[in-house]
Amino acid sequence: MAMLHVVNKSPYDACNLNTASSIMKEGDQLLLIEDGVYGAMKNAKAESLLNGLKVSVLGPDLAARGISQDKLVDGIDVVDYAGFVDLVEANDKVQSWL
């Protein structure tokens, strides 16, 4: 019963990423969108929250914020809107941490 966890807030402005990453179970996936994409940046304080997680991030939201691929934590999957839909389909449930 895999779950897709969606986070749309900056990890420095809200504790959503903190909660999501600590509640995620084996096989669950994390998708970062909107201001949540800041959580995907490397050399940053929130970076360690992603340790051991399967993480995707929405490309158009990265581009809007001027975050290039080389700024991302290694192993993160960048998806477009179609990829967002695929993730929703591939998981049994979606949990949006608003």
Partner: peptide
């Protein structure tokens, strides 16, 4: 300060999210 520093990053391109790029 805080997340406000993100406002000034270069290379912002909002064409994919349908919002005005005010950078």
């Amino acid at each position: 300060m805080d997340d406000g520093v993100y406002q000034l990053t270069k290379g912002q391109d909002t064409s994919g999210i349908g919002m005005k790029n005010f950078s």
